[in-house]
């Protein structure tokens, strides 16, 4: 029997966020009920989050249900967004668009190089026209900036 289901893992993660949030928020000034400090709200929220997450963890533990994750599209799409960010930072807009389209088409088998390249070119040209030409945003097409 699979005990660590995705549902359990997610609730454990939320509990961890709650505990971490509480530990950090304890450093902020709590204040009083009359004059709440910056720590008041976060402390209460963190405690609530932790309690709710623990009850969800128990629920998930008692009734484990298998969940499916489509790993391939998930990794491809996330890599595409990440690739866009990295290329935008270092190489400019044209590489960024080829990166995001090139990586996201890896979600499916046998997508083909030509349609991907056409999509990247068209989307990049459209975005350049709209954001750079029409709206005047500073978006370098190509750069080399480390």
């Amino acid at each position: 029997m699979q005990t660590i289901t995705l549902r359990f893992a997610i609730s454990a993660m939320l509990a961890a966020i709650g505990v971490a949030g509480l530990v950090i928020a304890l450093d902020y000034d709590f204040g009083t009920a009359r004059q709440m400090g910056p720590g008041y709200f976060p402390v209460i929220l963190s405690i609530l989050l932790t309690l709710l997450a623990v009850s969800e963890m128990i629920g998930a533990f008692l009734k484990p249900e298998a969940q499916t994750i489509d790993w391939r599209p998930m990794i491809a799409i996330l890599a595409a967004v990440l690739g866009f960010g990295i290329c935008m930072r270092f190489f400019g807009m044209i590489p960024a668009f080829f990166a995001v389209i090139g990586l996201s088409v890896l979600s499916e088998k046998g997508y083909g190089f030509v349609p991907a390249a056409v999509l990247a070119t068209v989307t990049c040209a459209f975005a350049w026209l709209l954001f750079s030409r029409l709206l005047g945003m500073p978006l370098p097409l190509i750069r080399w900036d480390f």
């Binding site: 799409i77 967004v81 668009f97 389209i101 996201s104 349609p115 991907a116 999509l119 989307t123």
Partner: peptide
């Protein structure tokens, strides 16, 4: 299959151009 790569690209440029920020991406 021709739609979603474009959507992802537009999401990227949308997030980025909001504050000109790679951090947000």
């Amino acid at each position: 299959k021709y739609v979603y790569p474009v959507v992802i690209a537009l999401i990227c440029i949308g997030v980025f151009s909001m504050r000109n920020s790679v951090f947000d991406v």
